[in-house]
Design a protein around this nucleic acid. Structure first.
Length: 943
RNA sequence: GCCCAGAUGGUGGAAUUGGUAGACACGAGGGACUUAAAAUCCCUUGACCAGUGAUGGUCGUACGGGUUCGAUUCCCGUUCCGGGCACCA
């Protein structure tokens, strides 16, 4: 019988749906395993062969775990809110919901063809009210919480209110936007609005006036991870800094826990490193400097407290409030001029040209270690948002300070033995300290740092700063709070209305607050977000319902929030929702959450390292504090699948002609390379007729061939429509079958590695399946009932061992060759034993489920192969009595000799002396050492 | 600039983590079957040298050193490619 993959695959696709083969339910008697893919944004372009890579890898693991007896949750859904659908809506008037629905249907159709074991009954879409109900709910909980530093967890805001009423801000250790100080009496005397304003300083979801990344072309703000090199990650439009009132999430409060959590999870080191960089913890000291001839003082942050003796000037950020306070009247004009200059510069200007600029404030600061007065400068190289917005400059040991000192001719004092600072600063934190005053030499300090290593000196100075009350030890993080408002239509609406300018949450029982209809998806004429176009978008507090905007009276009917939530809102807790997707009483029931816990294996791209993977960890930690999530870390193990790049093909057109010249001859002409559709190129040879038919302008094209063929050039590029290098999985499935596609994608190389797609090699995978099929048909036809031979068992168990290990390690690319080898061996052994075939069918089921099901049925089983048992490896079938080992003398390979498999040094030595091939080499020689490499070789060191 | 990960045939990639480097596949070359093509099967395929031949030898895992009986693997230095962070003090 032929291997008719089309018939087989269609048959099993239908049967899996009919029998609900992949539907899972919580089952306390079985161990759970949760496999998850990063859910896709359903774009209009559909899937290309790169998309399913991760899905196939996780599908193999899910199927393998199921065969091992685990109850496997492997859900799929859609990250359905997003910019492309909205921009399409702006251009065409087509409602984003319609576009999104159409795209989802196309995705689903494509996914269904590849044979995944997703439980589609658990599908979620972030744009559905039943789903974003819980996104809104979590937001309200964040609004109703503050972060307690002392207990390192989120707490209800009521506790903070209680604290304020009793002690004001005394004994308060909480995460906050700015440090406030007030008494209980003051708090109690304030009215509701004032109290609410103060509480905003502490809420985890808060409305904050902050500098945001504003993208004028997109008409919205962007989070830090959405901005790359001063332009938007999506679209590449310029981004400017703008002060705006926005919803923010206090992610920074969780910085330390986000950092610590990395130690407990099984992610790649490079991904953890990326997150560590993003969180950017730095340990240092805040030191207070008094201003000369003034009662003012200010605090700086430094990680190099050891360089206190190398300070020669101070620098303030232009945006710092200290600038106004410390500028002397004489310098005011110069400072104002400088501030005006800085204000004109965009983020992009700052990044692209880093010229040294600055202005002297006129004031001096007293170094608390030496009593020296140092000039206070103002410069844009100091950032307002980091540390205290003020630094002590140590030009000898900081390259930025160095550049500044050279430019403005300020002194440079080196502090490390033997360092040369005539050309550049010495930034390394290594070496021995010198040039610090002797103990007792100044009235300010009674010890010397000279002779200490930098590390010791840092510790010593920090300790001194703390003891003397000159400042305190401080940890700073680069991680900023996430800006949570977007001026868009196609996103989750905030469940918020405004009363007296203060945000109010709509009652929890009224959630979800559904996205209203608008007739235009653009911002309003007055510059309000698109929701400003909605007619029915006001909250009636009497009826607790959405009413027409015309009813707004600001007494019982109030305007609703016009911003929507960003993309990461819906993707932050979706893995919890899959556990209990139809629950309308809770995000997830405690029972479902207790059973599924967290994701055991998460598969997705590393491009989400500083976005989704930070936000969802934060979101989950918050839910953990609330007691909603059982596990502090959502994704125990994470595998990053590498991007599949496109392999583009080129044709070479001779300039100003319609003649194309083959690759090997192109250097003889002046040519322009042009992308050509890879689907009309096979093995880099162009299908000339198809090319003429491809585009009208090529209908009359002429060709200069080599050896009768037109050979194309090629390059590895991103897979994209514009490069004509997109390979569609549907086409591959049609031509070779889903099992071949699955096998080939895994065979291409390690899952984690980026690699170019090359359809040429797919024959090999397809050929293997045919061979496997033929072997199976042969066995089924003969159906010998005798016991398997030792050779057959050896072949099988070698395979079991290899495949089991490789799946565990995600080395699918090495598991597949093992199948090829075993199939060849068993074919050569003329195996006719169905027991051997049965085991092989189970082993291959995760990789090629359709063919496995078909053969499983042929073997007489009435259940699906998914309910089979993973074969057990038994060592005894691999053990051999004798082993052929290479005997080498002093490392030089000489002879292959059979030895007993369990031979030790003494027997080997004796055997070597007696053996006809080796005895003469050893005659009269002394054996120094015998090294046995198990089952491989023996090296005899002799002289 | 700092941090992380890499570099193996014409190509994608293996190598039991210190033990016969190049598994497996693609491509290429040769052959068988076929009127022919497709499909299938078999052989060769890192480079160089010697030999009619079986075969033997030398070199070879980016480059230069080191440790070791033995290094693709460990250590030091250099070059190149990829990723992250970046006037973050």
């Amino acid at each position: 019988m032929e291997y008719n993959f089309r018939e087989i695959e269609q048959k099993w696709r239908q049967r899996w749906v009919a029998q609900q083969t992949y539907k899972v339910t919580e089952d306390a008697s079985r161990k759970k395993f949760y496999v998850l893919n990063m859910f896709p944004y359903p774009s209009g372009a559909g899937l290309h062969v790169g998309h399913p890579l991760g899905y196939i890898a996780s599908d193999i693991y899910a199927r393998y775990k199921r065969l091992q007896g685990f109850n496997v949750l492997n859900p799929m859904g859609y990250d359905a809110y997003g910019l492309p659908a909205e921009q399409y809506a702006i251009q065409t008037g087509q409602h984003p919901a319609i576009t999104t629905e159409a795209n989802i249907n196309r995705y689903r159709e494509q996914l269904d063809k590849i044979g995944f074991c997703f439980d589609w009954s658990r599908e979620v879409r972030t744009c559905e009210p039943g789903y974003y109900h819980w996104t809104q709910w979590a937001f309200q909980k964040m609004f109703g919480s503050f972060y307690c530093n002392a207990c390192q967890k989120a707490q209800p805001i009521e506790k903070l209110v209680e604290h304020f009423a009793k002690e004001g801000t005394a004994n308060l250790d909480v995460a906050q936007s700015e440090e406030l100080s007030f008494t209980a009496d003051e708090w109690n005397s304030w009215d509701e609005v004032k109290q609410q304003q103060v509480l905003m300083n502490y809420r985890i979801a808060y409305l904050g006036e902050t500098m945001v990344n504003w993208c004028p072309q997109l008409g919205t703000v962007l989070a830090n991870d959405e901005v790359i090199d001063g332009v938007s990650a999506r679209g590449g439009f310029p981004v400017v800094q703008k002060r705006m009132k926005q919803w923010c999430l206090r992610v920074s409060a969780y910085a330390q826990r986000l950092l610590d959590g990395l130690e407990t999870i099984d992610w790649t080191e490079s991904l953890k490193e990326t997150q560590r960089n993003w969180i950017g913890r730095s340990e240092g000291a805040e030191v207070e400097f008094k201003v000369k001839d003034s009662d003012k003082s200010f605090t700086i942050f430094t990680t190099r407290a050891d360089t206190m003796f190398g300070v020669t000037f101070m620098v303030l950020a232009p945006e710092s409030e200290l600038v106004q306070e410390l500028t002397t009247p004489e310098q005011k004009a110069a400072v104002d001029e400088y501030l005006a200059y800085v204000k004109k510069r965009t983020e992009r200007d700052r990044i692209s040209d880093r010229k040294v600029t600055g202005v002297f404030s006129g004031s001096y600061a007293i170094n608390p270690f030496t009593g020296e007065a140092n000039p206070i400068w103002i410069s844009e190289y100091v950032l307002a948002g980091y540390g205290t917005g003020a630094i002590m400059a140590v030009p000898a040991h900081d390259s930025r300070d160095y550049a500044f000192a050279k430019h403005f001719n300020l002194p440079i004092v080196p502090l490390v033995e033997g360092c040369d600072v005539s050309e550049e600063s010495f930034d390394a934190k290594e070496g021995i300290v010198c040039n610090s005053p002797k103990a007792g030499a100044t009235p300010y300090i009674d010890f010397s740092l000279n002779g200490l290593t930098i590390k010791e000196a840092i510790a010593a100075t920090k300790k001194y700063v703390k003891e003397q009350g000159l400042g305190h030890v401080k940890v700073n993080y680069r991680l900023r709070d996430a800006i949570f408002s977007r001026q868009r239509y196609w996103g989750e609406p905030f469940p918020v209305y405004y009363k007296q300018g203060m945000p109010q949450m709509i009652p929890e029982e009224c959630l979800p607050l559904e996205l209203p209809e608008v007739d235009k998806f653009l911002p309003t004429e007055t510059g309000e977000p698109p929701l400003g176009n909605a007619k029915k978008w006001a909250w009636d507090t009497k009826t607790n319902s959405v009413v027409d905007c015309s009813a707004i009276d600001n007494e019982t009917v109030f305007p609703l929030e016009l911003n929507t939530m960003p993309g990461f809102a819906g993707s932050s807790a979706y893995y919890l929702r899959y556990m209990d997707p139809h629950n309308d009483q809770a995000l997830v029931s405690p029972e479902a959450d207790e059973y599924w816990q967290n994701v055991d294996l998460y598969v997705g791209g590393s491009e989400h390292a500083t976005g989704h993977l930070i936000y969802s960890r934060f979101w989950n930690k918050f839910l953990f504090d609330l007691g909603v999530s059982r596990k502090e870390e959502p994704f125990q193990k994470l595998v990053n699948q590498g991007m599949i790049q496109g392999r583009s093909n080129f044709v070479y057109r001779i300039k100003d002609t319609n003649t194309f010249v083959s690759l090997g001859l192109k250097d003889q002409y002046d040519v322009t390379p042009l992308h050509v559709d890879v689907n009309i190129v096979s093995g880099d040879v162009l299908d000339v007729e198809a090319f003429k038919a491809w585009r009208p302008e090529y209908a009359t094209a002429e060709f200069i061939l080599e050896d009768g063929k037109y050979v194309c050039g090629w390059a590895v590029e991103k897979m994209s429509k514009s490069m004509f290098n997109v390979v569609n999985p549907d086409m591959i499935v049609e031509k070779f079958g889903a099992d071949t596609l699955r096998l080939y994608e895994m065979f291409l190389g390690p899952v984690e590695q980026a690699k170019p797609w090359d359809t040429n090699g797919i024959d090999g995978s397809h050929r293997f399946l045919k061979k496997f099929w033929n072997l199976a048909q042969n066995i089924l036809a003969q159906n010998t009932q005798t016991a398997p031979t030792a050779a057959e068992l050896k072949s099988l168990h070698k395979l079991i061992k290899k495949v089991t290990e490789d799946i565990e390690n995600f080395s699918y690319n090495t598991a597949i060759p093992a199948f090829m080898i075993a199939t060849n061996e068993l074919t050569q052994l003329k195996c006719t034993n169905p027991a051997i075939l049965e085991a092989m069918v189970v082993l291959i089921a995760p990789f090629a489920p359709h063919i496995a099901e078909e053969l499983w049925e042929s073997l007489g089983h009435s259940t699906t192969v998914c309910d089979a048992q993973w074969p057990q490896f038994e060592e005894k079938y691999l053990v051999e009595d004798t082993v052929k080992m290479m005997v080498a003398f002093n490392g030089k390979t000489r002879f292959g000799i059979d030895f007993p498999a369990d031979a030790d040094n003494t027997t080997i030595e004796a055997a070597a002396r007696n053996h006809e091939l080796t005895s003469k080499y050893l005659e009269g020689k002394q054996i120094m050492k015998v090294i046995i490499v198990p089952k491989r070789m023996i090296n005899i060191v002799c002289k």
